[in-house]
């Protein structure tokens, strides 16, 4: 009963009939706009005939041939691309967190000469167009013998994401109460102990978000991977897909579609299940 007296319309748009119909119209059109390309690429991946690709979403002869080929053809070997990509992305995401979290903690909790300058410095240096670094990075990797290795790629991804990660983590650490840490320090815990045992567990949501964003970046990157990696056994997904779209465009399109679908599915699942952490994490860091 009480519900009837609560103001029903609290949202920006009035809940009148025409308003709701309009909202549905907008949403349905938007969903069609979003879904058509996706359904098209899925349907392409089931197409048996290579050359002719039409606009209809239901293929005339559906088959799993493309999927079979990318799991058996040694030149277009999806499992290896996928394994390489996950390995590189996961390791760089982890390395980025290990490098950035202590720094973010120091920036958030300690006051020291050079703190403000360093934070601004971190912001500014990452604005230089990334690939202009490639000539220098290529030389550096050559000196250290890391060319054409996943380790080289991982180190560059991880270190390259430091500024962004530090800022995002610092924003979140700032919002955590200091009282728990301080009482632990009074009880004789070390600074580092307070950081690893108290702050890090409290900061799990943002660690997850930063880790995820640093996972997505390498997962989709093509530019740097293509410069560092040369041998095809070490290719990542993006490189493999690019090779399919460049080589014989129309003929390998169904194969490309199959790889795309399989590459996208894990990301979609991860993303949709963690989306509710991402937005608060991002706006907390960016808006505040």
């Amino acid at each position: 009963m009480a519900d009837r007296f609560k103001p029903k319309c609290t949202r920006p748009v009035r809940a009148g009939r025409p308003g709701t119909a309009g909202a549905y119209l907008v949403l349905v059109i938007a969903c069609v706009f979003v879904l058509y390309p996706l359904l098209w690429i899925v349907s392409c991946s089931f197409r048996a005939t290579a050359g002719i690709v039409g606009s209809s979403l239901i293929p005339t002869e559906a088959s799993l041939g493309n999927y079979r080929q990318i799991f058996t053809d040694r030149n277009i070997f999806f499992p290896r691309w996928f394994f390489n990509t996950v390995k590189v992305s996961a390791m760089s995401s982890l390395a980025a967190l290990v490098l950035a979290a202590p720094a973010a903690y120091a920036f958030s909790r300690m006051r020291f000469p050079g703190r403000r300058a360093s934070l601004i410095w971190l912001l500014i240096i990452q604005m230089f167009p990334g690939f202009m670094a490639i000539v220098a990075l290529y030389t550096l990797l050559g000196w250290s013998g890391l060319l054409d290795t996943h380790l080289g790629l991982i180190l560059i991804y991880a270190a390259g994401s430091i500024p962004f990660s530090v800022w995002l983590l610092k924003g979140y650490f700032d919002s955590l109460p200091r009282s728990i840490e301080e009482s632990a320090l009074v009880d004789g815990a070390t600074r580092f102990g307070a950081f690893t045992r108290i702050v890090l567990p409290l900061a799990k949501p943002i660690l997850y978000v930063v880790g995820l964003i640093n996972f997505i970046g390498p997962y989709a990157d093509y530019l740097l991977a293509q410069v560092v990696i040369t041998s095809s056994s070490k290719w990542t997904l993006a490189m493999g897909m690019r090779s399919l779209t460049i080589s014989q465009f129309a003929t390998s399109w169904p194969l490309f579609s199959a790889v795309s679908v399989l590459a996208a599915i894990p990301m979609v699942l991860i993303f949709l299940s963690s989306e509710r952490y991402i937005i608060p994490g991002l706006t907390r860091g960016a808006v505040k």
Partner: peptide
């Protein structure tokens, strides 16, 4: 705005569909 319209049902379904482009790797 349309999504937050109080008359709209299946909001989380719409939302999940509309988030898809963000979730899919940009290269794809």
């Amino acid at each position: 705005l349309a999504l937050l319209n109080p008359g709209v049902r299946w909001r989380s379904l719409f939302r999940a569909i509309l988030m898809l482009p963000w979730a899919i790797p940009a290269t794809v």
